[in-house]
């Protein structure tokens, strides 16, 4: 399934100012991710998972080294270009869903398409498809407060997937879910990964998530400690 590279990272260093000195969060990361991968950044707190996800998601820039996502060098992007990359090609799934509470399920999923200026007809079809993928077409008029945690996270997945991005970045997506819901969510994402060939990159230390990954990138103290590809 995996073929062309969508992420290429060379000698990535990320330092943050801390007091009078600096703290090195990432130290010489070298990594690549192909299209259609289902991979996870695994490590304890402080290992650099979220920092790396931030940089890949064009929310932050490297201190040294290069990070190329979908052919664009993150360090060289302006704020507007970075926003455009996120809008057009990246999907985000957060631990705490971050849905718009006053908008319906349909409107939440529709939002990324409004940013991309799709027509109403196109939006309707794409939102319906996305809600089909996550099995929530019967809840289109519900609002997030009326949904369970699992349903909310499925809405978040539909919102991340509706524009068919090349890469979905998920930060601890099951942290707020019970075991049954976590498995349901993960199965949904595996299914979408296979059907749409969308690459998924998780930041997690949840065993349930890890068990579904086909590639496990272990981080420790800002370095890649181990990179394990699980054969199908």
């Amino acid at each position: 399934m995996e073929n062309s590279q969508i992420i290429r990272i060379e000698s990535l260093v990320k330092r943050f100012p801390m007091g009078k000195g600096e703290f090195t969060a990432l130290n010489g990361i070298k990594l690549s991710l192909g299209q259609g991968e289902f991979a996870g950044l695994i490590g304890p707190s402080g290992s650099g998972k979220t920092t790396l996800l931030n940089i890949i998601g064009s929310l932050d820039v490297p201190t040294e080294g290069s990070v190329t996502v979908l052919g664009r060098s993150i360090g060289a992007l302006s704020a507007g270009e970075a926003a455009r990359l996120r809008k057009e090609s990246l999907g985000f799934i957060f631990q705490s869903y971050n849905l718009f509470a006053v908008h319906t399920v349909y409107e939440n999923v529709e939002f990324p398409l409004l940013l991309l200026k799709y027509s109403a007809t196109e939006r309707k079809k794409m939102v319906t498809d996305a809600l089909d993928w996550v099995g929530l077409n019967d809840k289109i008029k519900s609002k997030p407060p009326q949904l369970s945690g699992g349903e909310c996270q499925r809405v978040a997945i539909a919102r991340a997937m509706v524009k068919k991005p090349s890469l979905v970045l998920a930060d601890e997506p099951t942290a707020n879910l019970d075991a049954a819901n976590s498995h349901n969510i993960l199965k949904t994402m595996v299914s979408l990964n296979r059907e749409l060939k969308t690459s998924f990159l998780f930041a997690t230390h949840d065993d349930k998530v890890i068990s579904y990954l086909r590639r496990k990138i272990f981080l420790l103290d800002g370095r890649v400690d181990n990179d394990v590809i699980i054969s199908n």
């Binding site: 998601g57 929310l59 990359l85 996120r86 809008k87 990246l90 985000f92 971050n98 718009f100 940013l115």
Partner: peptide
């Protein structure tokens, strides 16, 4: 604050 944050993360320009 949260709503604005998610909109920025999803690619809406500041």
């Amino acid at each position: 604050y949260g709503e604005v944050g998610i909109r920025l993360a999803m690619g809406e320009e500041k």
